[in-house]
């Protein structure tokens, strides 16, 4: 990926003292996977990319909504510039437990949906209806508590929450964790469409290699808080990814 077209770039990012620096760039329509054994830095890296975790060194740049390139240091600011992040732990950092489906959906997009400072509820309701069809969400009513939804449907609400903001890039931390197979296939289809039709680059951290092989154009394999290998689509096989996760060059 040439630096010029890239939407999100990381330069010289060091996740731990002494770890090797990581360079990374992602451009329109790309789907990049992050893999590695649990705790080898991929989780820190995706959080660093969205400004939730400050790396030891290096900088992250985002080509923002207004065309300017901004440095990602704080999540809320990056989010306002079109960066979206789907957290791993849906229950503690994803859904707002006591609130309704509509509130959970609308919360991130509020700043973009106001008229003279007043929340434009009708337009948000329309959008929720739109994404409900688009993502095949199932729930009783928009005012139902989010807790009554299945894991997969909660994840779709969170996805819709960010899509409503028309993101420039989406980062997803294990997006299909605890999601049933049918919903998972539906989500894959949605991800592919987002990248192919709308050109939104996706960074997907996954603990399932199968998922990365199915979805991603390339994969970064992390080991000991550094980037151990980067495999392009043609080179991506289950054996190679697993070998890289364990620090071996695959045959």
């Amino acid at each position: 990926m040439t630096e010029k077209r890239a939407i999100l770039t990381a330069r010289g990012v060091r996740l731990a003292p002494g770890a090797s620096p990581i360079d990374f760039a992602i451009g329109p329509g790309e789907i990049v996977g992050l893999a590695g054994l649990e705790g080898h830095g991929q989780d820190m890296f995706i959080q660093a990319l969205c400004g939730l975790h400050r790396p030891e060194a290096g900088e992250i740049r985002l080509q923002g909504k207004d065309g300017h390139v901004v440095q990602v240091t704080e999540f809320a600011k990056a989010a306002a510039q079109g960066l979206a992040y789907l957290p791993r732990d849906r229950r503690t950092t994803g859904v707002l437990g006591g609130l309704s489906v509509f509130d959970n959906f609308a919360i991130a997009a509020l700043p973009d949906h106001q008229r003279l400072g007043i929340v434009d509820r009708p337009r948000l309701k329309e959008k929720l209806a739109h994404f409900t069809r688009e993502l095949g969400m199932v729930y009783r009513s928009p005012s139902a508590s989010i807790g009554t939804l299945s894991g997969g449907n909660q994840q779709k609400v969170l996805l819709a929450r960010w899509l409503a903001r028309e993101p420039r890039v989406m980062l997803m931390n294990d997006p299909t964790r605890g999601v049933d197979l049918g919903t998972r296939m539906k989500l894959y289809e949605v991800f592919r469409r987002l990248a192919a039709d709308q050109g939104i680059p996706l960074v997907i951290l996954s603990s399932e290699i199968e998922e990365i092989l199915q979805l991603c154009h390339r994969v970064l394999v992390f080991r000991e808080a550094g980037l151990f290998a980067e495999l392009e689509r043609d080179a991506m096989t289950m054996d190679r990814v697993i070998a890289a996760m364990f620090g071996q060059e695959a045959a």
């Binding site: 809320a76 992040y85 994803g94 707002l96 437990g97 509130d103 919360i107 929340v119």
Partner: peptide, 20 residues
């Protein structure tokens, strides 16, 4: 809305991009 979200769960509100 942001106030109620921050009050009900500040971590989730933060990852929803709210300036807590």
């Amino acid at each position: 809305e942001q106030l109620l979200c921050v009050g009900s769960d500040d971590r989730a509100a933060y990852t929803a991009g709210i300036p807590v």
